[in-house]
Design a protein around this nucleic acid. Structure first.
Lengths: 143, 143
DNA sequence: GTCATTAGTAAATAAAGATTTACTAAAAAT
DNA sequence: ATTTTTAGTAAATCTTTATTTACTAATGAC
């Protein structure tokens, strides 16, 4: 049983992944690493310490110092001191930083919405409930 | 209606994505680009022309020449002439190349299987059918 | 058959990413 | 109170990735 579920989950991955590769295709204004940082901040949706980014992205903190300095200089994010830990710095996206991600996710949204017309109404309804169920259960699994 | 489905789909992405980031965490033997190439060949599961990889990965073909030469030299893939187009070269994974991916996907599988115990039997069944449905419908949408 | 296009290669250069070592200052442990 | 850890910064170095230009040989269009 578990084996079957795991297999279904794994077939899901390439599908989602394909969409994601498109996402960063033509971002000329930022480097990959800058993109990753912004993406991560966007997904986590809260101010992060440099260390948390380092951990989440599997990138050395020394590397981030510069990346983040650049991003700050160009107005994509701001740093503010952490009140709880005076060694730490909290990084969060500015509207400009958020907007870049909004645009990218907008593209996924748009592409998806176009393709959904290949399904008939009944299938669309099925998809909606199936996706909803999957989301709920996957989130429960992560807790 | 379409809006609701798209939103559900988009909440799915970060979840799947998180797993994927782990995937390439500690691959010290290969560079990122080498990893991407092998990953792509593995997912497509057929011999690919250099140009197809270039297109699929959004990477200039000039870059791939070297990356692929390296990978070939180290035994991860082989090149063979395309019979239909004598300019082209078909690239495919060797067992050594496949194995590297098998190992990585094995980790996802394992991690997923562990977490699935957080769901009770009924939820597991629900997840199985929901995932199955989602896969079928998303594939239909891609056609 | 000629000419433009396409697949791949090659080499040089520039830019970005990764690693190492070392430092400061706050926090946590003893 | 002293020592050890931890968060972040800094600079040097090395590796990888990206870009530009140019070339060969097969293909496709005319």
């Amino acid at each position: 049983m578990i084996e079957e579920i795991a297999k279904e989950y794994m077939s899901l991955i390439p599908n989602v992944f394909e969409n994601f590769r498109e996402l960063n295709k033509d971002s000329t204004e930022l480097t990959h690493m800058q993109n990753h940082v912004i993406e991560y901040l966007y997904m986590q949706n809260r101010p992060l310490k440099l260390k948390e980014i380092s951990y989440g992205l599997h990138v050395a903190k020394q590397q981030l110092t510069n990346v983040i300095k650049e991003l700050e200089a160009e107005g994509y994010l701001i740093k503010s001191p952490d009140q709880k830990d005076k060694r730490a710095v909290l990084v969060s996206l500015t509207p400009k930083g958020k907007e870049i991600q909004d645009r990218k996710w907008g593209k996924i949204y748009q592409k998806f919405s176009e393709n959904i017309n290949k399904l008939n109404t009944e299938e669309q309804l099925d998809l909606k409930y199936a996706l909803h169920k999957v989301n709920i259960l996957l989130n429960k699994m992560r807790e």
